Amino acid sequence: MASPLTHLGDMPIEVFMRDYWQQKPLLIRNAFANFESPISGEELAGMALEEAVESRLVLENGKSGPWELRTGPFSEEDFLSLPPSHWTLLVQAVDQWLSEVAELKDFFRFIPDWRLDDVMISYAADKGSVGPHYDHYDVFLLQAEGKRLWRQGPKVDESSPRLGSTPLNILKEFDTENSWELEPGDMLYLPPQYSHWGIAEGACTTISFGFRAPSAALILEDLAAEMAMDLPDSQRYTDAGAEVSSSPAEIDPNSVNRLQQQLSAWLQQPEKIAQWFGAVMTEVKYPDTVALDAGDAADWREQMPQGLPLLLNPASRTAFCREPSTLFVDGEPFPAPLAFATKFAESHEVSWLDIETFAEIAQPDGLIDQLVSQGSLIYPPEDF
């Protein structure tokens, strides 16, 4: 694994996290010195031919109108019929298919792994763009090949006017506050909701590192349902000590405040919240991809003594918590020794030494068997 970045350009990571993370944009010149793209535009187009890969094409002047969206998989004829300019190919989760791209995520481990989502890579023809828009998540935009002009606008939200003629969230109005031309190795950080518009200057490739953040709606809906399962029916709204009502039909402020206090008390279950949060933040984005690698639990017992470790599937996600000691893998909580859970979540591999040290994880139908059977743990490639 590569070491996490200690600086963004000349800025210490601690300063970035204190003054910029989720607060304001930052241009980082030469964030990766002498950067060479791990994938070419032609190779990216080849990935977009595969059914298992999520891909999209955005044409600024499409057959169906402005900012036309097409979804993959595509054919070679689709690419041959594209105009010479003003289009962009976007491929999701390239890190799940190319180890060279997956390794780039290690540089961002100054932020918890469970916050980082997949790595999207876009290839744009000259003047290609996905239009002025905003995202609900933080993103680092690393220029990989060619040049791209980034225009950054103000923070916007759901109330900002959008074009109604396209399924894309294209902003109807865009006011440029900053403008930068990025070259290979340069990187732009954008917090959530900052409007931006990237336009290729000649053909170019951009690598996007996006971060997960569950919405308030999901948290309230999903967490409430999870916690409600353990609340007895006898646990109800109470108003002991209430004053005599002067207006019997009113939902008075005291009653509302009392309910808020009771809700807060019902939520005082940090271990339950940790279990829910760990499962949600490690939910795999493409479960079918993980399932493709499901193995026979008996096989690893033959290979492991030969010195071959088991590796976390590139499409899988993992994290751990201390209270109670739990390893989360692909949205599932597994009780595990804390020392093992910590080591595995950090290293993403299981060695024979781990088996000898933590014998309980190797029991029949135990943790290792379960992870191998669901495809979360895989055998290393032949060139490992």
Rank of each mutant, 00 (worst) to 15 (best):
H7T: 07
L8P: 01
D10W: 07
M11T: 15
R18F: 07
Q23T: 12
P25Y: 00
L27Q: 01
P38D: 03
P38S: 01
E42H: 10
M47W: 14
N61T: 09
K63G: 14
E68L: 03
P73E: 02
F79D: 05
L89F: 06
V91H: 01
D95F: 03
Q96E: 15
Q96V: 09
Q96N: 13
W97R: 11
F107M: 07
R109I: 10
F110N: 02
Y123S: 00
A124F: 05
D126G: 00
P132Q: 15
P132L: 10
L141D: 12
L141E: 01
K147F: 13
L149V: 07
V156K: 04
L163A: 10
G164W: 09
T166S: 07
E173F: 08
T176M: 12
T176G: 09
E177R: 13
N178H: 14
E181L: 14
E183N: 13
P191F: 10
E201F: 06
C204F: 00
S208P: 03
F209T: 05
G210S: 08
R212D: 09
A213T: 15
L218V: 12
D230Y: 09
P232C: 14
D233R: 10
T238I: 14
A240M: 14
A240T: 14
E250S: 14
E250R: 15
W276A: 03
W276R: 02
E283I: 10
K285W: 11
A291H: 10
L292S: 11
A298S: 14
W300T: 05
W300Y: 03
W300A: 01
P314I: 05
C321L: 09
L327H: 01
G331S: 02
G331Q: 08
F334E: 07
A336V: 01
A336D: 03
L338F: 08
F340C: 06
H348D: 12
H348K: 12
S351P: 11
P364Y: 01
Q370D: 13
L371Q: 04
F384M: 13
